[in-house]
């Protein structure tokens, strides 16, 4: 894979998922258009430290992970003053057909995106929620 030069003003995306092939694929697809800078974390226990250092604009969190699961990681991130306001999108395989059709949605005040997710939906999700937060 060729190293791509990423512009400075692009949005920073953190993805936490134990599935390495998935994070690799997300990183590859988002960074293709040079609009996003993606950092992948496969060990959920390293999520907080990486987020502090990376300053993401949005965080995608897998829910079912060994070690600390998505819920644990979210609690850690929200407990951090710098990261408190960064939108967190839970990536879940456990969704209904309807939710899945919507691509990303809100449930119980939390943001969700359904697996499998395509690149377009991912980008729409990022754009929607980063625009709101600013």
């Amino acid at each position: 894979m060729t190293q791509v030069q990423i512009p400075k003003n692009c949005k920073r995306v953190l993805i936490v998922d134990d599935e390495e092939s998935f994070t690799r694929m997300v990183k590859r697809n988002l960074e293709r258009d040079m609009k996003y800078m993606v950092r992948a974390v496969n060990d959920s226990t390293e999520a907080l430290a990486t987020a502090r250092e990376f300053h993401p604009d949005i965080i995608f969190l897998d829910i079912i992970m060994p070690g600390a699961d998505g819920g644990d990681v979210a609690a850690q991130l929200r407990g951090d003053s710098q990261l408190r306001k960064v939108p967190i999108v839970f990536v879940s395989a456990m969704v209904s057909r309807k939710e899945s059709a919507e691509g990303f949605y809100t449930s119980g005040g939390e943001l969700f995106i359904a697996k499998p997710v395509n690149t377009g939906t991912l980008i729409r999700c990022i754009e929607t929620h980063t625009a709101e937060s600013e």
């Binding site: 599935e19 092939s21 998935f22 694929m25 997300v26 590859r28 697809n29 293709r32 079912i64 395989a93 456990m94 697996k115 499998p116 997710v117 395509n118 690149t119 377009g120």
Partner: peptide
Amino acid sequence: HEVKNPLNIILMAADT
């Protein structure tokens, strides 16, 4: 969880 992850990879690869 186990099946949707590979599906996701396939989907995103197809996107590209």
